[in-house]
Amino acid sequence: MRGAVAMPIKIPDDLPARRTLEAEGVVVMREADAIRQDIRPMRIGLLNLMPNKMSTETQIARLIGATPLQVELTLVRITHHVARHTPADHMASFYRPWEDVRTERFDGFIVTGAPVERLPFEAVRYWDELRRIFDWTQTHVHRALHICWAAQAALHHFHGVPKYERGGKAFGVFPHRILQPASPFLRGFSDDVAIPVSRWTEVRRDDLPSAVHVLAEGDETGLCLVEDPARRSLFMFNHLEYDTRTLADEYFRDQKAGIPIILPRYYFPADDPTRDPVNTWRGHAHLLFGNWINEMYQTTPFQVHRIGI
């Protein structure tokens, strides 16, 4: 697959994320214009399990829309799970249930985290369907990216890897070491990278099978990024996709609701929550997603029906 010019991201014309991305200078293609392009776009699906789906849509679209390729983003939801924090008309207008897309093939597929990490996997209401989706990525998706809880869930499904409760919540922007600088997914990365973290649980290195490679980890927060080459999958336990104020919004939301919450570490200047945080991870977020898409582009079949074979 080769394109001659830089291409934008294709998302539904009325998706609220479009206005935000256009205001930031991200080139967004209208659906009518995309149809006229004589090129096969990279097809990426997003299974969005986060409560604030519109915010997550924007975060992911911003990163995959910054590459010099035409990308078609398909928003996917669990078939029989009703989102409680996103308007029903938004879900009906822009999301397709997985059962409706399961016969289609994607160059890339992203599964987000979800606010269920302290539940046993089997206690999650949509666990059975999610397991079917994980298996489907092995036959209908060229490369998969799992984020936070989804990374833990996929490793548990494929390899039986357990998750553990931490002594306290890992919350803040923590330093991480790059362990495999030659990885194509880490091209351009600094030796140490600050990455937002927000989780109560963790996966431990000793439980990983030898087929899974650790690409990055932190002294305080443990595993960060691992790869399963045989399954063409990346597992990111933290949140490079977060906006500048995502952790602040979480902190003030819980504080207002009377939920015990610690101050996010290494985040507010001088640990003063009245001061605006500074985004120190944005460049590496673009690098990771850009590298992932580039590796996908270099290796995916040109004929869509051959994806996953």
Rank of each mutant, 00 (worst) to 15 (best):
L240Q: 03
R19M: 14
R2C: 11
Q152A: 10
H142Q: 07
E217S: 10
A144V: 04
V304Y: 13
G172S: 11
P97I: 09
M29F: 02
P120M: 15
L247A: 04
W149S: 01
E227K: 05
K53W: 04
T201E: 08
A194N: 13
G290H: 02
A66H: 06
F106H: 00
G283M: 12
Y267S: 04
A216V: 05
V28T: 02
D191T: 13
G283I: 09
A154Q: 07
A151G: 02
H140Q: 09
G308W: 03
G168F: 12
A88Y: 09
N238V: 08
R125L: 15
D191Q: 14
N291L: 06
P264D: 05
L223H: 03
G113Y: 01
L63N: 02
L225S: 00
Q59W: 06
V71S: 00
D276F: 10
P184D: 10
S190P: 10
E57C: 13
M7Y: 04
D254R: 12
P120S: 15
R306K: 14
A285Q: 04
M1Y: 09
G65E: 01
R19G: 13
F158H: 11
A6Q: 13
M1S: 13
Q152D: 09
N279K: 15
M236P: 01
V161Q: 02
F289L: 10
V27L: 13
K169V: 09
H239W: 01
D38Q: 14
L46Q: 03
G45H: 00
R232T: 04
